[in-house]
Design a protein around this nucleic acid. Sequence first.
DNA 1: TAGATTGTTAATCGATTAACAATC
DNA 2: TAGATTGTTAATCGATTAACAATC
Lengths: 214, 214
Amino acid sequence: MNKDVDAISMQTLKRLPVYLNYLEKEKLKGTINISTPKIAKDLGLTEILVKKDIRYVTSKSGRPKIGHAVEDLIFDLKEYLGYNNCSRAVLVGAGQLGKALLGYHGFNDSNIEIVVAFDNDPRLIDTEVSGIKIVDIQKLENLCIRLNVHIGIITTNESSAQEVCDALVKGGVQAIWNFAPLRLQVPEGVIVQNENLASSLAILSKKLSDKISK
Amino acid sequence: MNKDVDAISMQTLKRLPVYLNYLEKEKLKGTINISTPKIAKDLGLTEILVKKDIRYVTSKSGRPKIGHAVEDLIFDLKEYLGYNNCSRAVLVGAGQLGKALLGYHGFNDSNIEIVVAFDNDPRLIDTEVSGIKIVDIQKLENLCIRLNVHIGIITTNESSAQEVCDALVKGGVQAIWNFAPLRLQVPEGVIVQNENLASSLAILSKKLSDKISK
DNA sequence: TAGATTGTTAATCGATTAACAATC
DNA sequence: TAGATTGTTAATCGATTAACAATC
């Protein structure tokens, strides 16, 4: 079995939403066909990289001299990224960051829909943020089971994160997007994706100091 | 000139803040010495990877059987990441995401300090968020020059981002951390680091659907 | 001592880039 | 036709992992 022949690289996967976002905008502009060199130029990537990335996800062949149909590319990207059968998610921790995610427009056109948020602050419970209800965290486990939700987003502070994680797992959550700065302990099979703003910032600062010291 | 011999990899750089955060916590626990296999185990990384990463940044040699002094590692990491001479930054766009960043504790112990935020909403202007004053965006360019700030964070919506970026550049900003989903046009030499939550989400979803389809 | 850990050099793996024939 | 773009295969580059001698 050559199961890895068409395995997509993580790097490619990260770029797919970027292409999708770009193409949606091109579509609005009325662009019908688009070539990979054009995409590459507009997004600041190399031509071959874009060509290969697009090859991964698209079923139809592009046409020499013309490129790919924008509509088709958008369809294929959405299909590949699973934006056509979107999953429901819950968010835990309705602080500033949690609220920011609840109102994040990037998710409108994505593969997850946050259906409910949890917090332990009585002032927040039973209020709504961006149309999403905030529920008492005590109800987390049961509500996850009832809603049959499989994705959890943790935007609590560090000290509550592990406890929240445990409750999510008990509630049947299989994938966790973790914004708290610690390594969550999860049973085997549960997926954890850590988001770390400090990492990005480290890169920015390094580039800046390299530039200045030149 | 073998200028690239000790060039750090981007991947290593991303992990450094993770090590730092972990080590700060170990220090609080009273840990004096720590080995790279122990760090690797706790953070879910391979032993050799951590060993190499640590080698990059540390001046002193570790001691066989004992490991590295936690204090020394923390010092070296902070030194390398520039956390000891922190840069001032401005943030533009005090919406939910902007507010989340203004209150983000991860920055407390980091290399940037947000000194002022800008917005165009009269209801926000002259208020404070997490102790940081929000100023009329009209004053952006002049205030950046006066404060001699070189880092800008853009958390506006997409449609204002380019305009804000132009103003930041005019104000002398040389590095931009961009949270808006578009490619900013900047003069050569200005550094742009794009933050894209949709990319992370794409990876999470892919892993989940791979798992489910197995 | 034995064994864990160190630091370094070599090998592998993964991602990007180069090269090139095919096509409209 | 000429030239831009396509898709694919080969080469290079970068990051991780393996191997191993040195050390406390």
